Computed example of a mutant assay.
Amino acid sequence: MKDVQNLNDVRGIAIQKVGVTDVHLPFQIKTKAGALQSVLARIRLTVDLPQEYKGTHMSRFIEALFAWSQKPVSYREMEQLLGDVLQRLHAQRAGIDIHFKYFIEKTAPVTGLKSILDFDCSFAGNLVQGERLEFTLGVAVPFTSLCPCSKEISDCGAHNQRGVMRVKLRQRPGTFTWIEDLVTLLEEQASCPVYPLLKREDEKYVTERAYENPKFVEDVLRDMVLVLRGIRGVSWFEAECETFESIHNHNAYAYHSEDSQP
């Protein structure tokens, strides 16, 4: 059969990324405790396409993903997956973005009741032929903030709201951060963490803890930056903080990114 994709293209435009997106597949993520957590992943997988080729081979992306979907996703497996894709597609550069819900057990602060909270996470990998994988971990962490200004000017009470911290970070080869550890570090920068299950005693605790620990969105972001700088082996990170304001019809937002020194 005629292979139209391999026909010559004369427009002289190389495509930096071509492939498949919005692919949904089950994957397994290794937890800090050593178990495997099954997640439903939304995936984008791409390669570069030289200017002389008319198209890529879409089926080969799915073949590669299906073959690797039964294996735990980690730095090594992602590097091997992208290496496989480079060979299948005869490409020089390959990239993958995996977005998934990750569940972590949470313990209520007073009653000790256990439940699970979901976190939006992502793994991103970029591999150039002959080089090491560039791996990026992403996580979004919900939190509670209480407004310092509101507390200062009010005779009683202060407005608080739920927010979300979003972080992406890259680490040098040989260093790694567990999702669980990153979530804990970020939650500690909030006025108070978010819990999926609270009894009255727990609700009293989180309300009072937030009141005693007021923070603007800028405060939360700056504290996030300080702890991210302290993670071993981080070469780059970006951090953003957004609070869903309870007394406004808009959100408050702050962002920072930086490269770490070698």
Rank of each mutant, 00 (worst) to 15 (best):
D3W: 13
N6Q: 04
N8Y: 14
R11W: 12
Q16Y: 07
V18N: 03
I29M: 08
A35L: 08
S38Q: 14
A41V: 11
R42T: 13
R42V: 11
T46L: 02
P50Y: 06
Q51C: 10
T56I: 09
M58Q: 04
R60Y: 03
F61M: 08
I62S: 13
A64N: 07
A67C: 03
Q70V: 09
Q70N: 08
V73S: 05
Y75M: 05
Q80R: 12
V85S: 01
R88H: 06
I104D: 03
E105V: 13
K106Q: 13
V110K: 05
T111M: 14
K114L: 15
S115G: 15
A124H: 07
N126S: 11
Q129A: 14
F135L: 15
T144W: 10
T144P: 02
C147E: 10
S150I: 10
R162S: 12
V164E: 14
R166I: 05
V167Y: 00
V167K: 01
K168H: 08
L169Q: 06
R172Q: 10
T177M: 02
W178T: 11
E180V: 04
V183M: 02
E188L: 11
Q189C: 15
Q189F: 12
A190P: 02
S191V: 14
S191P: 06
Y195M: 10
Y195H: 12
P196N: 07
P196F: 07
L197V: 08
L198R: 09
K199S: 06
E203V: 06
N213F: 09
P214R: 08
K215C: 08
V227F: 02
I231A: 04
E238M: 10
E238T: 13
F244I: 03
N249W: 07
N251A: 01
A254N: 02
Y255K: 11
H256P: 00
E258R: 03
E258C: 07
P262G: 11
